[in-house]
Amino acid sequence: MIRPEEIKMSEEETGKWGMVINQDLCTGCQACVAACAMENNISFVGEVDSGYGRSMHWIRIERFWEGEYPEVKMTPQQPMLCQQCGHANCEPVCPAYATVHSQAEKLNLQVYNRCVGTRYCANNCPYQVRAFNWRDYKRPEPLPNQLNPDVTVRRMGVMEKCTFCIQRIHKAQDVAKSEGREVYDGEFTTACAQACPANAIVFGRVDHPESLVSQLARKGHGIKHLEELGTYPQITYFKEG
């Protein structure tokens, strides 16, 4: 078995899967938000609980205002999702080991059947991308028919977050293995990247230098959000050029 002390976390360790988000292309149409909710069986919270700040989205479009009225200017739309940090703040605080780092896929996992709902991870996440199931939100008929069978339907009292569509990663790896080859770049993508009409989101292997995400990440002046906290996020953002 792999013991915690054997897990090496070197500073220069790169992730496996990553993303490049171009904020100049993003129009804020929310197609990624809808696609993510459909792909990952995310509950529909409703307006009452949303009013309490309990809305559940794994990806959201952030926007900020610059300047004083009447000289206000909107900053570019900023899709914010789990950054799949190399040094994730959510992981060491979980008392139930429900959010652990996948050594195989280099992702932050959320193991729903271990989660006891302390919400410590969400309080520790600097990106505020974790969502908690405050209730068992009912899906009226015939909506249960559109549930994705590859993704667990979460219950009340469980934390959840973006998984980088790990079910698609596993499916692509399974298909590739049955055909005796490696997963090639662009063979599959996440639901948000697939739905984006402007191709503002690109997903792929960041540890392969010739993949599209690696090429885009090298180009220009991409930034990683809150990198100064030492979280080693896997998503590179581009804006204004």
């Binding site: 078995m1 996948s102 195989a104 896929e105 996992l109 059947n113 993704v151 667990t152 790990i166």
Partner: peptide, 13 residues
């Protein structure tokens, strides 16, 4: 193979 087969994310997601 052990890392892959004992990873939580192999079965739970």
């Amino acid at each position: 193979l052990l890392i892959k087969l004992s990873d939580c994310g192999t079965c739970h997601y």
